[in-house]
Design a protein around this nucleic acid. Structure first.
Lengths: 240, 240
DNA sequence: ACAACGGATGTGTTATAACAGATGCCAGAC
DNA sequence: GTCTGGCATCTGTTATAACACATCCGTTGT
């Protein structure tokens, strides 16, 4: 019977004894499941895990030197987020990004990222603007040098730093989850044939200009155009 | 070492032996974790679980007569989706819908549901249109009879049936997850003070008209207006 | 009477083991 | 030689147990 646990106080306030303040905070180690989930996320972002690859609980557990239980938990979380899929035999697999699936994600991302950009427009502090400009230069340098991987990483950092400014945690988390779903297939951009010049610089400049002028609609339009250019480059490389 | 499991074929095609066809399909029982997750979802939708309520693994397990392992998996999934939150001591709790949180969800829902509606506009088959009209009448009757719970359920069914027509599974799943986050607090609409008449009928009529005329923009506008009316009713009832 | 100490209890976390289903390989029969 | 049967193995699923931490309550000492 679940008749227990009717009242329990959180440990947040921590009843600080008067006279002992400002001792700093000790960091509790994150649970293995959360750590494993973060490891998989990172690998997905980095493109280390290829689309179609199977992720079994025991393999993940052995790779990370943990027991199958937290490994399974990490996989379960990513599946619930839509970042991983379940195969026919219920084994988790890195989804292959078909054109149809990309088109769907593109539509959703356009709405959500434009929303985050519009909202962020009036909330970018000077230091964040400086950071965005720095990332912009990093991105431009990577493009100039033909460093596809570096350009992709800088591009992700740029968008992420902008969206963070909107201050809506759920929206940020949803956008991050969507990027994670596209991420593993982005390596196609510089592994196969990197045709055409990288055009992102123009749209990124437009985004920075929108921050300066505080023009939310211009920001939304610039983001949509940026995503649209990415779509034009990636779509022909995707499987039907 | 994860050196094993390099090749494994799915069991989807099932190599149907020639000569034996159309035997029907046997239904495999869903895993306990998935069943438990669905139970919790249903309870959330029905408003059985109150905001702020703690969900411990052992309580959920005992209530559903399963072991803690699948109960924990179900909770993990809902937390990953954002439907449940983790308290300070990492116990899952039904989130309390503050005004700020509702405003965030409202912004996201406006974009996503308007998108789904626009896309669905040209894809509603005659039988689905008939079903929508039937749900509309059910909704109107519940409103007329002052049946708040029934009206809420019919409203959810109406929106759900419309969005399904867009044919984008990820989008539908995201919208469903968002409704689940608002759901537990909707009981406030008819438990506390149900002030003002239910205005949804007008916007729902506009949505049906948009289907008939195939006017995607009108559909988007009608959905935004519908959500906006709901916001006006619910917002004053929410805690700061 | 009040405060501090210490055990009892609840809870998340993790490891381990056992079970069931599916796949692949290998041997044996025709 | 090819097909059929069975065994070994991989994998998800689930139960159980043990550990650590936090909270709560009763007791005890002043």
């Amino acid at each position: 019977m679940p008749a227990a646990a009717l009242a329990r106080l959180p440990l947040e306030p921590a009843t600080s004894a008067i006279g002992l303040v400002d001792l700093g905070t000790i960091d509790r180690p994150a649970p293995l499941g959360a750590q494993a989930s973060e490891m998989l996320r990172s690998a997905l972002r980095r493109g280390t895990l290829r689309p179609g690859q199977r992720l079994t609980t025991r393999d993940v557990a052995a790779t990370l030197s943990i027991s199958p239980t937290p490994a399974r938990e990490a996989i379960t979380r990513l599946v619930a987020e839509g970042v991983l899929e379940l195969g026919a035999d219920r084994t988790a697999v890195v989804p292959v990004l078909t054109r149809a699936r990309y088109e769907e994600l593109f539509l959703i991302r356009s709405e959500l990222e434009a929303l985050a950009g519009r909202l962020a427009c009036g909330r970018v502090e000077p230091d964040r603007l400086a950071r965005l400009e720095s990332i912009y230069r990093t991105h431009a340098a990577a493009v100039e040098a033909g460093d596809g991987s570096g350009a992709l990483a800088a591009n992700a950092t740029f968008h992420n730093a902008l969206y963070e400014a909107c201050g809506l945690p759920t929206l940020i988390q949803m956008i991050d989850s969507l990027w994670l779903q596209v991420g593993p297939s982005l390596t196609l951009l510089f592994s196969g044939g990197a045709q055409g010049p990288w055009i992102g610089a123009t749209t990124h400049r437009a985004m920075i200009r929108a921050i300066r002028t505080g023009d939310a609609e211009a920001m939304g339009a610039a983001i949509r155009q940026d995503l649209n250019e990415g779509r034009g480059r990636l779509l022909p490389l995707l499987p039907a």
